[in-house]
Design a protein around this nucleic acid. Structure first.
Lengths: 357, 357
DNA sequence: GTGAAAGCGCTAACAT
DNA sequence: ATGTTAGCGCTTTCAC
């Protein structure tokens, strides 16, 4: 009934493979054993097979639209080429940029990325279990806080882990972070260069390494300049709202403040709100600096002077560290710090003008 | 030499499971067959097993730190609970927000998300192959353009697919999009309400559904109001740079323009640049509207009047559509449109003031 | 250079 | 209610 298949190449790469061809089918069609087909199709083992057989198998595989089943291969080899990434908030630009860096770099190494949001610690623990049970080869955590239970669990599991943007004070695992102390020092020196002497620090949450280290950087830079360390007010979270609240406390504490160095751009924008609420102009009355150089902070009013973090690079460094860890789990945990850069814009100005308010 | 293990519960939940326990080991330790252990541990089949055996198995499993190997289970059941997501640019806030919505909703259904950036079409095609070979149950595409080869490939594979933020004109697959025509009509009506009659459209790329539909919405709204349709200039990409270039062309084409309705916030910000370059004040000389309500556009100068898209909702709707598709692949492809909202801010003002320039 | 056989860890008929 | 058996699709000894 059916017309005989003619030998010319079919128009489409085989009829739509409703059910994907399996290695066994390829082998049968090529008249070889499936182990031979496996070897022929795998670049690592193809050299074991005679060129003509290899060619025939490859041709048949292409005709049948064969695709290696990575799931089955992973089960057999225990190599999934899968990495899990945990972030606190996907909607946050900082983590989106880091994730972009991670994904791009992992793709270069033909790894796939399983991404999940760990809003709370409990959720994080469950996610680790689920990622382990999917046999991810390693994890990148952007969520880590002080005494983090998720990190602890990863260590228990012996799961190769790297941190990004957050450091582990105990240095038990590799981490890629910005040089937080130096970044804040950059901001403080910039303000001092403009003549500011009364500088307050709008700090981040102190159980996050960025929050803690940037506060340390602030103190150190002030001391080094021989200045009395200004007031430090930690915000409850890295948000505009928390920033505004903390900035208000900061202004309450020290009336004569001429500059605020914030631990993060969103906090700095919160400070804009607090200043506006008191009729204090920025930068005329009070200068403000941020941290991160998020997209669009060059267009806010006034354009935010900030410390640029190479977020994508942070992501790709974390990948490098993780892959190293996967290859040599017992090697010492490398800490990579990226170099921050000050981006001067309109939110900082010389301190010589007296405040009106 | 080693002290005998005493019977008290060990301090830690078993000694660190260097090598995770397997179902067989649990079964052996509980004195049952591994299929019994499997049934006992699976909520779906636990009712087949007597309560006491179930309890014993559960207890042993907990003691040994047993974790079901999802990889092996998936191979057996052909259900991976894995969904692939393709976005054009992870670093773009719009897609980050959509991804957040996708991830959150998929997590509720205990699906995991494999995310990848498809920068070009070739890359997209390869990614589809790789996702197929990982046996993702379905795909969400945020990358689709006119006559998209990636979408075509998904259809060939018979892979359940849903689109997000982009529509397929042929409606071959389900899609969750904003109501692009209505969104743009909102902006145009707002401008007309302020007395603007000479309005230009800073359009998006015309091979992307948002670009095309928003342009259509612009035309329709102008005609409906009995106005002559103003000039339309498509930008090469949804970026500030492309927006500035296209806005310059727009201003060249029609000198008397009092308002620009942009297809996207970044394009609108590009228009800010073009206006500033010509000494035209916004909104005094020319009003500008955007589209998306990206984070921080409320803080740029002037604060951008824009059309808010519920990006996270878009993501969760896409997930709903995809899961439906996975359940009933042959059902008609539903199109979901979310309702846009105009957010009036400082970049639009009444048209009565004459331009100085 | 190729084939045969075993098995990764799990689940789902099919017994009993 | 539980055990037996047979794979999912692949890779990798081990033979020849």
């Amino acid at each position: 009934m059916a017309p005989p298949d003619d030998a010319r190449p079919s128009r489409v790469p085989a009829q739509s493979p409703r059910t994907a061809a399996t290695l066994q089918q390829v082998a049968d069609a090529a008249g070889v054993h499936r182990s031979t087909a496996s070897r022929a199709l795998n670049p690592e083992t193809a050299h074991l097979i005679s060129p003509d057989v290899s060619a025939r198998v490859a041709e048949v595989a292409a005709r049948l639209g064969y695709r290696r089943d990575l799931l089955a291969a992973s089960l057999r080899t225990s190599r999934t080429r899968l990495v899990g990434v945990l972030v606190p908030d996907l909607a946050n630009t900082v983590f989106a940029l880091i994730l972009a860096g991670i994904e791009r770099t992992l793709a270069e190494h033909s790894y796939a990325v399983l991404v999940a949001e760990a809003r709370g610690a409990d959720e994080g623990l469950e996610l680790v279990e689920s990622l382990v049970s999917r046999r991810t080869e390693g994890l990148i955590l952007a969520t880590v806080r002080e005494d983090d239970p998720v990190l602890a669990r990863c260590l228990e599991h012996g799961l190769p882990t790297a941190l990004v943007n957050r450091a582990d004070p105990a240095r038990r695992v590799p981490a890629a972070t910005p040089d937080d102390r130096e970044g804040m020092a950059l901001a403080v020196r910039h303000l001092m260069g403009l003549g500011h002497r009364s500088i307050g620090h709008l700090a981040g949450p102190q159980d996050i390494s960025t929050g803690k280290l940037r506060a340390q950087g602030f103190r150190a830079a002030m001391r080094k300049a021989g200045l009395k360390v200004g007031p430090i007010e930690p915000a409850a979270a890295y948000t505009r709202e928390a920033g505004q609240t903390a900035a208000e406390r900061l202004l309450d504490r020290q009336a004569g403040l001429t500059a605020i160095a914030a631990a993060n751009d969103l906090l700095a924008l919160g400070a804009y709100g607090a200043l506006a609420a008191r009729g204090l102009a920025c930068p005329d009355a009070v200068s403000v600096t941020g941290h991160n150089d998020m997209p669009l902070v060059d267009m806010v009013h006034p354009p935010l002077t900030t410390v640029r973090i190479a977020h994508e690079q942070l992501g790709s460094e974390a990948v490098r560290l993780l892959l190293e860890r996967i290859a040599r789990p017992e090697a010492p945990a490398t800490q990579v710090r990226t170099v921050p850069a000050l981006i001067p814009r309109g939110s900082t100005a010389p301190a010589n003008r007296r405040r009106e308010g």
